[in-house]
């Protein structure tokens, strides 16, 4: 579904943000991309989302190449990141309709999809209020709805629970699980190891742009002889540096 091979991103001659990174995901899994802030996770995800151009290497999403088939790639991905905002003066419904319109969906399909998402994300009664009036949790629900309005095969969640309270955070994690259940791929990027341990089947640990380890969560813990993923993360990154 998603294949990343020898991916490298340089900014000028001095900054190497991503260094020869490779991994691939399977249908129906939540794949973790773990690393501290500045590890290169967001840069990697932006390259997958066609927002940044790779310096070297290749990325394929649902069989489409990010360099030569960027539009098809964008039709197959949805992105949620912690910093993504909304149009405060538009209602939640208007925002969802606006984004849906770029995927060639008809009015009836859009209305049906919004109804589905509104039930799944429990945002019914607030959908017709302006986004500027929403709580952080409700905003994040609209951001998720916007990312999956076209039912993409790959959903990227980049630090998607940042700044959320416990209820909103739980809703995001449950939605990710449900999305995976529909046979989709969820890329879950985070620096919070407990979340990744709770949610992901497999994960890649990245530090300084390099892949430190990639395996199932259980295998990563075994390899590091650690009780939990956070300890495993420290052991593996310390060993690599």
């Amino acid at each position: 579904m998603l294949q990343v091979q020898n991916l490298t991103k340089r900014y000028g001659a001095k900054v190497l943000a991503v260094d020869n990174l490779s991994f691939q995901t399977k249908e129906g899994e939540i794949y973790g991309l773990l690393g501290p802030n500045g590890a290169g996770k967001t840069t990697t995800l932006r390259m997958i989302a066609t927002l940044l151009e790779p310096s070297e290497g290749s990325i394929s999403v649902a069989g489409f190449d990010v360099r030569t088939q960027a539009e098809q790639v964008r039709r197959n991905i949805g992105v949620v990141n912690g910093g993504m905002g909304l149009y405060d003066r538009l209602t939640g419904r208007e925002i969802l309709e606006y984004f849906a319109s770029f995927y060639g969906m008809g009015k009836l399909d859009i209305a049906k999809r919004i109804k589905e998402l509104s039930t799944a994300l429990e945002m019914n009664e607030l959908l017709d209020r302006r986004a500027g009036e929403y709580s952080t949790g409700m905003k994040q629900k609209i951001v998720i709805g916007r990312a999956v309005i076209h039912n993409p095969s790959v959903l990227i969640l980049d630090e998607a629970t940042n700044g959320l309270d416990v209820v909103a955070r739980r809703a995001v994690l449950e939605f990710a699980r449900a999305y995976k259940g529909a046979g989709k791929v969820v890329i879950y990027s985070t620096h919070i190891m407990s979340e990744a341990e709770e949610l992901c089947e497999r994960a890649a640990i990245i530090d300084h742009g390099r892949l430190i380890a990639e395996d199932s969560i259980q295998a990563l813990k075994t390899r590091a002889s650690a009780q939990n993923l956070e300890d495993a993360f420290f052991t593996l990154t310390k060993g690599a540096n």
């Binding site: 927002l51 964008r74 992105v79 990141n81 910093g83 993504m84 905002g85 984004f99 770029f102 951001v143």
Partner: peptide, 15 residues
């Protein structure tokens, strides 16, 4: 850019 909504728009199929 400040709100982060531009990034969301640019990952849709619009050129």
């Amino acid at each position: 850019k400040e709100r982060g909504s531009l990034e969301a728009l640019l990952v849709t199929p619009i050129s």
